[in-house]
């Protein structure tokens, strides 16, 4: 696939998918979505990129080994669970911080639950890419 247009196009598409995937992840707690769906969407972007420009380029664009990303994701998810220990709660007890909370509005919620979902996102993203890149390179 040597089409320049395709390559440039995919690059943009991959970017859009990546942004969209974050959005899917963040809205997951209240509407359909979440870390897994987000991670899959994000990975799809890079898969397209790899198909269009080759895994070499895709790996370069990623900068980090995908399996390292996946493992970091697992670590982050675990740390999100461990965070509760600081407050004497059980593993994976959600810890919430509401920024700018008022009587009527809970403000911007920051929580370990969100961190956990980010972990899920990274795991899915990294794992899918590990698999697809390796398959692309071997097959």
């Amino acid at each position: 696939m040597n089409s320049v247009i395709l390559r440039v196009g995919t690059r943009y598409l991959a970017g859009i998918l990546l942004v969209f995937s974050f959005y899917m992840m963040l809205r997951g707690h209240n509407e359909p979505g979440g870390g897994f769906i987000g991670g899959l969407t994000g990975a799809t972007g890079f898969v397209l990129y790899a198909i269009a420009c080759g895994t070499q380029d895709a790996r370069a664009a990623l900068r980090v080994l995908p399996q390292t990303i996946a493992m970091w994701g697992l670590g982050i998810a675990l740390l999100a669970g461990l965070f509760a220990a600081l407050f004497g709660d059980a593993l994976f007890t959600g810890q919430w911080l509401f920024i700018g909370a008022t009587e009527s509005d809970k403000g911007l919620p920051l929580s370990t639950v969100l961190v956990f979902d980010i972990g899920v996102y990274l795991v899915v993203f990294g794992s899918i890419l590990t698999l697809v890149f390796a398959m692309e390179e071997e097959v």
């Binding site: 997951g28 359909p32 979440g34 697992l74 919430w96 639950v113 795991v123 990294g126």
Partner: peptide, 29 residues
């Protein structure tokens, strides 16, 4: 603090399951 009950189950009520699940994904990869 979540309106998507399925997602709340996944990341909060049964977060340990989900953790195990992503571990499976990592290991599979």
């Amino acid at each position: 603090y979540g309106r998507n009950i399925v997602n709340v189950i996944l990341v909060d009520f049964r977060a340990l399951d989900t953790f195990g699940e992503i571990a499976v994904v990592v290991i599979a990869a």
